[in-house]
């Protein structure tokens, strides 16, 4: 099981995968937006998205868990 964490503080701009979806290593799951910059957060290993912990528009801090992949 792997936790997908926010690499910076900002808003959840877009969620581009769904719970239950199988994803590949390196696939973009969530796009964060902060200070005019968009940062894609990608899966670090292949698996299934067990849980999405955030919604579009949420504010997250650096290190917050965004999703759980197993």
């Amino acid at each position: 099981m792997a936790e997908l964490k926010a690499s910076m503080a900002g808003n959840v701009w877009k969620i581009v995968a769904n719970e239950g979806q199988s994803v590949t290593d390196g696939q973009d799951i969530i796009i964060l937006e902060s200070m005019k910059m968009e940062i894609p957060i990608a899966a670090e290993e292949a698996g299934t998205i067990k849980e999405l912990k955030v919604n579009e528009g949420d504010f997250v801090n650096e290190g917050d868990v965004l999703a759980v992949i197993e």
Binding site: S7, M8, A9, G10, S34, M35, M37, I39, E62
Partner: peptide, 13 residues
Amino acid sequence: YAEDPKTFYPAPG
């Protein structure tokens, strides 16, 4: 810039 000097990620605060 208010950003991480290593990753260049924005760092508000």
